[in-house]
Design a protein around this nucleic acid. Structure first.
Lengths: 202, 202
DNA sequence: GAAAGAAGTGAACCACCGTTCATAGCTTCC
DNA sequence: GGAAGCTATGAACGGTGGTTCACTTCTTTC
């Protein structure tokens, strides 16, 4: 044999791959899936279109990777908050707030993850992650029902409503174009969440 | 002059157009916007691909027409229920129930209207109609707040949550594939809606 | 330094799809 | 019946965008 990947080379390759995924994520967040052509992504990463295929077998595979990375981060953060300290109702409120705040802080990415038109492979991925968000919320709702803090209810539906509400607000900002008051919006959203779950009025 | 459209001819033309729109709606409901190519739609209507352009200047125009017809019906029905008799809370519950029931009865179409990936022109239309659904719900919520039946709240967000929740449930049926129990689902949804709006517990 | 092999390149390829257009078939009017 | 005008047709066109591939460039090994 006359060639073996040296550690430095391996590192260079994975770095290139990471760089590609990062740039692709940025492009998707900025212009959406439909406009994120292989050429556009490659340009953003400073490589040739053909080189993308050194790292991924197809555009769909790259897209799925981009989606999984970004959506995975959100699931992780949400999970930490929902499984953190505090009683179920508090955690639910904080979870909604964090989830929504992160989405509002990176609207483009959030839109891409939750709503923007995408190829079927990404659509399937989106479905899977929606289930995970929903499951996380539902878990806390069930907990609240068990401890008596919340009334009996279909937790899955409550959870669906929470993600749906945040998605709605993201897709079509109600307060006009400007972020007139993000904090107020977040406050309204958490209040909605507590009503949705049937938490006692404060 | 040697030619003028006779009434019968006019009727034939508009009928052909209607037939085209109807078939296109069916195709979209069955396979989604992305798979509803001009050829597929023309085939379904039993005409040549080129003939579509006798009735519509572009595929986008046909798509928009299909969307407007279908979404317009829903707005109308929802409006009638929400503006009908009964106190605001009752109307809200009935509105959610009717909206969701119709969606569940024609899942394919509902999915196309609310969620399925679509070309930009349809996306814009969708945004406009979402605002209308939302406005209708918000109106009733405001009414309820005014009469004291509901607590003070951001009605727009409550309305967004309601449409979002129904959309969520549609996109990813929670109870597995089967309609295990549509009535139970509807009951859970209306219960959710009332909690969302903060209606007194029954 | 030279051979061997991998990564990078970008122009060309190809499939798909909306759209057009020359042609054929019908309808209207005299 | 025939001229004029409209509608219907479907093969051909053109743009787009993912993918390929012969070739260049860089890295490793001896």
């Amino acid at each position: 044999m006359a060639y073996r990947k040296t550690p430095a080379e391996i590192h260079r390759l994975t770095a290139a791959r990471e760089h590609l995924v990062g740039c692709a994520t940025r492009v998707v967040a900025e212009v959406g899936w439909s406009q994120a052509s292989v050429t556009a992504v490659a340009d953003a990463a400073g490589i040739a279109a053909g080189s993308v295929y050194q790292h991924f077998p197809s555009k769909a595979a790259l897209a799925v990777e981009v989606f999984r990375r970004a959506a995975g981060r959100e699931v992780e953060v949400l999970g930490e908050v929902l499984h953190g300290p505090g009683d179920p109702v508090e955690r639910l409120a904080r979870g909604v707030e964090v989830f929504a705040r992160r989405a509002l802080e990176n609207r483009g990415l959030a839109h891409a993850l939750l709503a923007a038109p995408a190829e079927p492979a990404v659509g399937a991925e989106r479905l899977a992650f929606r289930r995970r968000y929903r499951a996380l919320f539902a878990e806390v709702v069930h907990e609240g029902v068990a401890t008596g803090a919340l009334p009996a209810q279909n937790g899955e539906i409550t959870a669906a409503a929470l993600t749906g509400a945040i998605g709605e607000v993201l897709v079509d900002p109600l307060g006009g174009p400007g972020d007139a008051d993000t904090d107020a919006l977040l406050a309204d959203l958490t209040a909605l969440a507590l009503r949705c779950a049937g938490a006692p009025r404060s």
